[in-house]
């Protein structure tokens, strides 16, 4: 019991929580934007891999860190363009296209990695984002190191949640996006193009997913590994449901997930953890996500037109 308390009171634990949550926040916001506009984007897992690779590769070949983030975002938007084109105007199955994009984006990233670095055995490193302590605030106990001694990308992740909230609920653009996911015919009757709104949402959302992937290679670690995304994309899809399609609640979900994940990592190193196979700990995040879905699904406000392709003039 004392061990558990030690874990929960250590600053490094809370710093890890935020670090684990950061890539999930980017990708969850990306998925949330897509789904709010009515498009389920199962390409998320692969787009995160592509973003992780593209951002890292850009920096490895000599570009700046922020340029790397932009490259990752651009790569994500390209896959978003493909996803959007197939699912929005052509109305293909969002499940199939999404999984196809995941397969494609993952394979393209791995292919490009092997092509660029044919003979490496240990993954080469880059000079990743360094923690940027916020003056004064970083001196606070526990909160300081946890929240205010993070890398710039983490600050950006948290700021993003505010921006997404603001745009979704306080601007005409956000209203149009939400309406495209709830009642596309009403959007069209206002003279707006559902196709354009959904395409834009999928592209921006995919770009954010890719930044989430890039966080892994450019901030959390400094190399690109195969299998490094390892289901995080699917967890983000669960987080969107958990957050009832609202940015603030989804952020809460990502942080809760971070708490849980950081906790299980530390629990593995205790006496209790030594007796339990490590796979049990690795299973817990996935089981927890399923549990969270069960609890939240009862009162979830699913966008009414999610997964329904819109065709003009059809009723």
């Amino acid at each position: 019991m004392a061990e558990i308390l030690d874990i929960l009171l250590s600053a490094s634990f809370w710093a890890a929580v935020i670090r684990i949550a950061s890539p999930l926040i980017f990708a969850t916001m990306g998925e949330l934007i897509c789904e709010r506009a009515g498009v389920l984007n199962l390409g998320i897992e692969g787009i995160m891999v592509a973003g992780a690779f593209a951002g890292w590769m850009a920096v490895y070949s000599g570009l700046g860190l922020w340029t790397g983030v932009a490259v990752a975002m651009g790569a994500g938007m390209l896959f978003g363009l493909l996803h959007g084109t197939l699912t929005v105007p052509f109305g293909l199955s969002q499940h199939v296209v999404g999984l196809g994009i995941t397969l494609l984006a993952t394979a393209v990233a791995y292919f490009a990695y092997r092509l660029a670095l044919p003979r490496v055995t240990t993954p080469p490193r880059i000079e990743a984002f360094q923690p940027l302590p916020v003056p004064y605030l970083s001196d606070l106990p526990i909160v300081g190191p946890a929240l205010f001694t993070q890398t710039p990308l983490t600050y950006l992740a948290f700021a993003l949640v505010g921006v997404v909230s603001l745009v979704l609920y306080r601007t005409p653009l956000g209203l149009a996006v939400r309406a495209a996911g709830e009642n596309p015919a009403a959007v069209e009757s206002q003279g707006l193009s559902v196709t354009a709104i959904r395409m834009g949402a999928v592209m921006v959302g995919s770009g954010l997913m890719a930044v989430g992937g890039a966080f892994l290679t450019m901030s959390a670690f400094n190399s690109f590994f195969f299998e490094m995304v390892n289901g995080r994309g699917w967890i983000c899809i669960a987080l969107v449901v958990f957050g009832a399609w609202m940015p603030g609640k989804a952020l809460l979900g990502a942080v809760l997930f971070g708490i849980f994940d950081a906790f299980q990592i530390r629990l593995q190193q205790t006496a209790l953890g030594a007796d339990i196979p490590y796979q049990v700990f690795l299973m817990l995040p996935f089981l927890l996500s399923i549990l969270a879905l069960v609890v939240m699904s009862r009162r979830a406000a699913v966008p009414a037109a999610l997964m329904t392709p819109y065709s003009k003039g059809e009723r």
Partner: peptide, 17 residues
């Protein structure tokens, strides 16, 4: 690189649907 097989599979899927 052998990942070309998966790229072609994904391309075949997306273009076929």
């Amino acid at each position: 690189p052998t990942y070309i097989a998966n790229i072609m599979l994904a391309t075949a899927l997306l273009t076929m649907v």
